[in-house]
Amino acid sequence: MPPRILPEPTPETQHFWDGTRNGELLLQRCKETGEAYFPPRPFAPKTGSRNVEVFKASGRATLYSYVINHRPRPDMGTEPYAIAVVQLEEGPRMMTNIVGCPQTPEALVLDMPLEVVFEKMSDTITLPFFQPAKG
């Protein structure tokens, strides 16, 4: 199996990938409006304000939408897998994979509660995945 395709951080996103490596899901928010946003950038969209801050997200989310890819990318193995978009508690959505449950329509129910987990993929990259919430 070829090595998994991994992100290459840029100066604007480095803090996010440093965060996942440390087991933290870091978002940003505008300090004027308080609105959280994603993906990372050094200013708030719409307002254009550079007065922003990085903060640690709760890691709680719900399943917003997904597909189950039946033609796996070579680096993803041979079994069908879900490519999901989750709704983070803080407002933004992000793409991810759902782990710790079967990759089937029956197991993956829209709006089910999820929680973030981190999986180390290389020395520099840890990917944030989500699993069904426990408790």
Binding site: L6, N69, R71, I83, M94
Partner: peptide, 18 residues
């Protein structure tokens, strides 16, 4: 490349459909 490709998207059939 950073926020979608790592999760196994391929061509449009796994992105446009999400």
């Amino acid at each position: 490349g950073q926020f979608e490709m790592p999760y196994g998207v391929t061509a449009p059939p796994t992105m446009f459909t999400i």
